[in-house]
Design a protein around this nucleic acid. Structure first.
Lengths: 347, 347
DNA sequence: CTGTTAGCGCATTCAC
DNA sequence: GTGAATGCGCTAACAG
């Protein structure tokens, strides 16, 4: 391996001063063609990579980072993304960055709209956006683009926008993996149910729709579509859920497994525990605090994790590198790797 | 959040100089009790965290890192650990560190002994050791301890040694997870085989023995021990393997799944492909290049990954932090999280 | 024991 | 256009 050189060494080799090399490196202009050529020539041959530490030391800027994501209970999905963001802040605490969390209600587009409208006032250097409401997100992105403020998405993508990066799991893969796992873990003769949340209005999140599609697609390919049954549960009323699940199982006594395509699988797991139906296999999404509890006690058999902490962490890391070291140009969506979690490999 | 303070600010608050604060922070001694108390008091109240960048800039040491691991084919297990190590070198390339790879033959204890004996001559600041031969490793550790050279293990642990850190997957968990997955993915009526490598001598690696134990333990707990069959395959002769597998399947026609407890599951997958037996479920360990190929083409159904790249990366990262920032004292073994990989979530 | 100081590599400002 | 000078926060060597 060739030894890394410093700016000074490059300068010496080129017969110019360090300042000139710096101007060439950063395309700052104000360099004669002659000097430029000399430096470029040396640079092409030698191994120069800027020292990330000294660079950070010199660049003592302060950044303002706005994070616009849904509010969430402690330990639930969006809170895990928040955890990842905070972890990254600690990791990069040497860079002076002020973070402004802008939480909105993920079931209330008006709250989203309001919060989004306030973001430019923060005058952020960059924005991390949790994609939830399509129109509101588009609108915000337009405003940010007009002001030349870079933004990245976590947990999804919105067509017609230009984020500098995207951190999200592939929803097709998520749905398909849970389908395969449920198919394998449920006794061969048993049917498999999908439980949807009962919601006011037609609230299906876009991500869960994509997962549902992929989930069904798998069973269609396998010629097992007839094994699928669908049920509904109240997301905010555990007692009602026990009743709902119980009724459902009377209706479909052959069901051997239940899948929940959102991060609240624990609600079904808890209901089944209450009903004493430990024989039924339950699969869900994401390692929220509640899901982790159910995985541990065995009432939830598996979860496909979109690794929200990783999404949050990577988003901040990307922003830091983008703003500070500006080594990365706008990038193609980086897909976060999906993890299959059983009781045994729960972190 | 309280603002991070600098050494100078801490010094001012304590009424001492920056040098004294530095001595207190690093326990370098040569500080009066009085001064020590003053500084500690301020430190306890304020948020001081060393700026990793300026610290690294200032500490312009050169480290010598010796890496003693088995030689390996490109893309096979130990080569993946090596990949992780190299990745970490790039990540930490701002720290001047010279890495010396010392490869030995993992099936030849003499080669290991020789290589290990040469390590002190390198005069390394730290050593990363791939645990393979117990006695040779112990001997090396003794020598290193005598010279006060810190060492970390990857891929295992050896009793009676004192590594400053260990990066390894929990073998019980590995074995148990594969057992659960094979149990789920193999048709209920089918038997499940374990294929062991045929080796000269009694060469079972310690890790694979631990996995085997946990694997069997699972089936015992489930009351399915009678479903387990055991077979052997030649590790270096693909043609022979086809014959071996074919014979085995004649002997046990009811086998629906085959598990391989080492990273060469692809050999069985390839043999089954050659025999046209795509109906048999195959599970193995680790995402080597060959296993990845078989996962993709469907001949290998699942692999439990010990994340060798992560082990390698983390080991170097730990060493860097240990030597340079010396924030971490000797630590309890850090267990690398195990990953379940199907075709769908293959990175 | 303690305070002062040089210098790490880079980004930037300011004379020339 | 260009080079020299400055400072970032920290470490370590040095002078008291």
């Amino acid at each position: 391996m060739a030894k890394k050189l410093t700016i000074k060494q490059i300068a010496q080799l080129s017969g110019v001063s360090a300042g000139t090399v710096d101007r060439v490196l950063h395309n700052r202009g104000r360099v004669s063609e002659e000097a430029y050529a000399k430096v470029r020539k040396v640079l092409d041959k030698q191994d120069y990579r800027r020292n990330i530490h000294t660079s950070a030391v010199s660049l003592k800027k302060t950044f303002r980072l706005a994070v616009a994501i849904p509010r969430s209970e402690k330990g639930e999905y969006w809170d895990l993304i928040r955890d990842g963001i905070i972890e990254a802040e600690v990791e990069y605490s040497d860079i002076s960055m002020d973070t402004f969390f802008c939480f909105f209600d993920q079931f209330d587009s008006l709250s989203c709209k309001e919060v989004f409208e306030g973001i430019p006032d923060i005058n952020p250097s960059a924005v991390i956006i949790g994609t939830t409401f399509v129109e509101e997100t588009k609108r915000l992105c337009e405003v940010l683009e007009a002001q030349n403020i870079p933004y990245v998405f976590v947990d999804g993508f919105v067509d017609g926008t230009k984020p500098v990066a995207v951190f999200s799991a592939n929803q097709d893969i998520c749905g398909r993996i849970l389908a395969r796992m449920m198919d394998a873990f449920t006794p061969e003769t048993g049917d498999i149910a999908i439980f949807h949340p009962k919601r006011k209005g037609t609230m299906f999140s876009n991500n869960s729709l994509l997962r549902l599609k992929a989930f069904k697609e798998y069973f269609r390919e396998e010629g097992k579509l007839s094994k699928l049954k669908e049920g509904y549960f109240s997301i905010n009323n555990p007692d009602a859920v026990i009743e709902e699940v119980s009724e459902f199982l009377k209706l479909y006594p052959n069901v051997g497994g239940i899948s929940v395509l959102i991060s609240t699988g624990y609600i079904i797991a808890d209901a089944l525990s209450a009903l004493g139906r430990t024989d039924i296999c339950v699969g869900g999404f994401d390692i929220t605090a509640n899901n982790a509890r159910c995985l541990l006690d065995g009432s939830l058999d598996m979860a496909v994790s979109q690794r929200p902490e990783t999404q949050g962490f990577d988003a901040v890391e990307y922003v830091v590198r983008y703003l500070l070291y500006s080594t990365l140009g706008p990038q193609t969506p980086g897909t976060v790797n999906v993890q299959i979690v059983l009781k045994e490999n729960l972190s």
